[in-house]
Design a binder for these strands. Structure first.
Lengths: 155, 155
DNA sequence: TCTATTCTTGACCTTTCCAGTCAAGATTAG
DNA sequence: CTAATCTTGACTGGAAAGGTCAAGAATAGA
């Protein structure tokens, strides 16, 4: 029921891109430094984000990653689903055929029908929050922008 | 983001008690057989449910487990929190002091503030569904009651 | 009181996955 | 050409998930 740190890192990294570099490609090391994320791990994370069509990349000097769509159209839900492989419930109604097979009481499984409803609602909640909303919150929290030395809190 | 099978089993077991045995103590083996859950594992699960004051127990012949409160007052949220140890987010705002310490960007962590909002909403959703609601769905799905040979679907 | 039944406690085990590292290669700007 | 940057994929240690098991304590009913 908790978010993996992978997802948390992904959210932070995307927030970072949105907040610090408008449209420009940003390199992993810069993001990793600002957001305090293991760089090697972040590489892996960005591969997933790229596969999910959330970010694009550019190699070579002055390369990096950038958002493929505008921040208003990228939701928390999209990111979470990309990282966690969907908000799945374990039982009968799941997309995994093997799991469905294993559950002997299949369609009779009341709990999984309830859980499906719940996860639908959860997805709706997560899709109601966009990256630009995150950036807005960043403003409210008075984050300083474009500091390479890491985020610093200004009173 | 997925429910552990432990939680799923707990939900199924509680549904089973609510649905099949009104007020009476029910033994683990009967529940395990009907719900197709490993009996030994179910023992462990009921210990947790007992610690969470959701069920009570009675030893000896004709003993078993029973709900401590009425089904209308027991919510999915309570069960999930009991089994998963709370819907925690990993970062700064969490209850774990050590985790909070480790997160260098503490209060500036926009994502965790967002995630806190989301998990509050999720808890609300889960607390809106009660055990008696589960039982109701059981009726709707036309489950047969009190069959020791396992649940059977009747058309 | 004896006994069968049922929960209780806690140790133990196996497998999977999370979180993270690393190396070698492909691309491209300058 | 070369330095910067992403790409691919293999690898690993530790923790957590998912169970199993045995010995003991309590209790209903004979």
């Amino acid at each position: 029921m908790r978010l993996s740190s992978k997802t948390m890192y992904a959210l932070r990294a995307l927030f970072d891109i949105t907040f610090h570099s408008h449209g420009k490609a940003t390199k992993i090391d810069a993001i990793a430094a600002r957001e305090n994320v293991p760089p090697r791990f972040l590489e892996q994370i960005f591969q997933d984000l790229k596969a999910a069509q959330i970010v694009g990349s550019k190699r070579g000097p002055n390369g990096g990653y950038f958002l493929l769509r505008s921040p208003e159209t990228i939701t928390i839900g999209q990111v979470v689903r990309a990282m966690e492989g969907g908000v799945e419930h374990t039982c009968c109604f799941g997309s995994d055929a093997e799991v469905r097979e294993k559950c002997k009481i299949s369609s009779k499984c009341v709990t999984s029908s309830v859980w499906r409803d719940i996860s639908l609602q959860l997805n709706a909640i997560m899709d109601a929050v966009t990256l630009s909303e995150l950036a807005l919150r960043g403003e409210t929290l008075r984050l300083t922008r474009d500091s390479d030395a890491g985020l610093t809190y200004t009173i």
